[in-house]
């Protein structure tokens, strides 16, 4: 179609839109107009945007435990290795929180019904496990884990004997 137009040119004929295309391209776009977007695109992007947000939120949630790791490390460092009420409270918190979080994984990811968030869940799980391991490490360094034979000494049965003796200095 364009080819015929360029070939056939009448004298008197007014070309009302001679450089319609070119001029349009030369002119600056009206404010707010973006070349890369059109009606159709905006429509679809609206849909994908909320999706993205959701995913972003999911990642937010999933990465939460991992983000706590530096903080936890700091807390652990601050708590010290002595066994007193505050360090114990802190260690207890460190160990209880990830476990709680693990148990409530389903409810945490409930907002994305239908969506498969396996990756996020996995990352979330890994993060919590890392936290638990950290807490266990802390327990270990505080000597709270019964990992040695000395920790089980108290549970041993009292000594029994085969022979019974009596006697002393001669009474005569």
């Amino acid at each position: 179609m364009s080819l015929t137009k360029s070939n056939k040119k009448f004298k008197w004929a007014l070309d009302f839109n001679p450089k319609s295309r070119t001029s349009a391209s030369d002119l600056p776009s009206p404010p707010g107009y973006s070349q890369s977007t059109n009606a159709n695109y905006t429509e679809s992007s609206k849909e994908t945007d909320s999706n993205l947000l959701l995913i972003k939120k999911l990642w937010d949630v999933a990465l939460g435990p991992l983000k706590q790791v530096p903080m936890n490390l700091f807390i652990m460092y601050m708590a010290g290795n002595s066994i007193s009420i505050f360090p114990i409270m802190m260690v207890g918190m460190l160990i209880v929180r990830p476990i709680k979080a693990l148990f409530s994984t389903q409810s945490t990811f409930k907002m994305v019904e239908g969506t498969q968030a396996a990756g996020q869940k996995f990352v979330y799980f890994i993060g919590n496990v890392v936290n638990i391991l950290l807490a266990l490490y802390k327990c270990q360094s505080m000597g709270l884990l019964p990992t040695h034979s000395s920790d089980w000494l108290a549970f041993e049965e009292p000594l029994t004997r085969v022979e019974h003796i009596g006697g002393g200095i001669s009474m005569i």
Binding site: T48, N51, L52, K56, W59
Partner: peptide, 16 residues
């Protein structure tokens, strides 16, 4: 810049 955004771009961004 939030980490979750980075992750979203990394994993979710490509598909969109």
């Amino acid at each position: 810049p939030e980490m979750s955004e980075v992750f979203t771009n990394l994993f979710g961004g490509g598909t969109t």
